[in-house]
Design a protein around this nucleic acid. Structure first.
Lengths: 225, 225
DNA sequence: AATGATTTGTCGGCTATGTTACAGTTCTAG
DNA sequence: CTAGAACTGTAACATAGCCGACAAATCATT
């Protein structure tokens, strides 16, 4: 029964959909299944054995701390996303951890080495996984080049657009996003100061392009972003 | 004989070193083997069939053009590097091309689909390749976060340091780099205006940290960068 | 050797954005 | 219900680095 649970938790992910029950049993080791609450911190890069994680429920942010102690948001992970040592290469020096944003999350994980074995036995999965990593790379490239070449306003617009696309719910002609980020979070994601983010958001609100509150963000007309 | 040539040209790359002669024959299709001269432009994203390229000799830059016609340097490719559709996913919209920087280059290429077949038959190669793509991703992340969080001067320093490490020749306690980039190129790589790059380089020269000419750059004391 | 093209050098004004600083608002935990 | 913490709002000021403009130097081609 517990075995079955594990099975479904992985099967769920599109990457693993092609695998048989038996094959997933090979990856028998969802050694970790964890729940956590808002604000909790989950260390993963420095964990004993390198792992790959799968977020089953909720939202987390990946935060990196540099030498000077500055925090930067590396990524926002949503339900269904993989995170951790996706490159299959343990990286001791990257000083990253995950912080829970939503009220509670559920995470499962498996050992990198076990995953490698599975890939070796399933070339087509290996290929899919490579493409998956590649896609991730492309996304990163894209968002970074936005960060570099556009000004803060454009970056905010782009961010909201992406967010709406990923998680927004269309209600009539508006898009409603559940807002689990603080303005500071948003600022960090689009790489600007909190103040500028605040200003821009307020500006958009007075313009009537969005309705902002701590609970949700409503975008009037997504095509105008 | 010609077959043998192809073989060696691939065998050369560390990724393919583990493959047998026969396996490389499977990838029998180094359909392209091309030479080009300085300034030439090589289109690859829009090429008929998606390919993966291997630069055998020389240096090229990967340039992307955005909607407004602005050119940005995406990458500098050196002898031995792979480039092209590394993610194994044809990408029609990325408007990229390669421009030859050194006096002449030699490039060989093979079809993405053939490469995929090879990966399917060689799980361990697939794994290596995944790690290779992963590594590339990590590098990109790294350099981008430099671009974002550091100022132009630090970026230039970092760039010179990397360049020296990759290509510099140690002569006594100095490092000499063959300079095939214009100041404009450098500016684009570190994402600043040409003027600022010029200013910073001159500043470094008067400081005595580097000796700059169009042919070569000499770094006095690399540890001081 | 000459001419045009490319690359480099330099300057002053301008703008977006970070910084510092503080006040008001909303949430949270006891 | 209340105090403290965490967020949000606003403003003045400083500045890195972009941009336009143009001159000087170097390279490439005939």
């Amino acid at each position: 029964m517990y075995e079955d649970l594990k099975y479904w938790y992985l099967r769920d992910h599109k990457l693993f959909r092609t695998l048989s029950f038996g094959q997933i049993r090979q990856l028998c080791i969802i050694t970790g299944f964890k729940k956590a609450k808002k604000g909790e911190i989950i260390y993963f890069s420095s964990s004993d054995l390198p792992r790959i994680f799968l977020l089953k429920k909720g939202n987390i942010k990946i935060v990196a701390v540099d030498e000077d102690g500055n925090e930067t948001i590396k990524d926002i992970i949503q339900k269904g996303d993989l995170f951790g040592e996706l490159t299959l290469e343990a990286d001791s020096q990257s000083n990253e951890y995950a912080k829970v944003l939503s009220n509670d999350v559920a995470i499962c994980s498996f050992l990198m080495s076990d995953f490698e074995d599975l890939l070796l036995r399933n070339p087509s999965l290996a290929l899919s996984y490579t493409k998956f990593v590649g896609l991730k790379m492309k996304r990163i490239k894209n968002s970074y080049s936005n960060l570099i070449s556009k000004d803060a306003k454009t970056r905010l617009f782009q961010f909201l657009k992406d967010w709406a696309e990923k998680e927004g719910k269309k209600i009539e002609d508006k898009v409603v996003i559940e807002n689990y980020l603080t303005q500071n979070d948003i600022a960090q994601i689009i790489c600007t100061s909190r103040q500028t983010a605040t200003q821009l958001l307020n500006e958009m609100e007075t313009n009537g392009t969005i309705i902002y509150s701590r609970k949700e963000i409503i975008i009037r007309d997504i095509s105008k972003l």
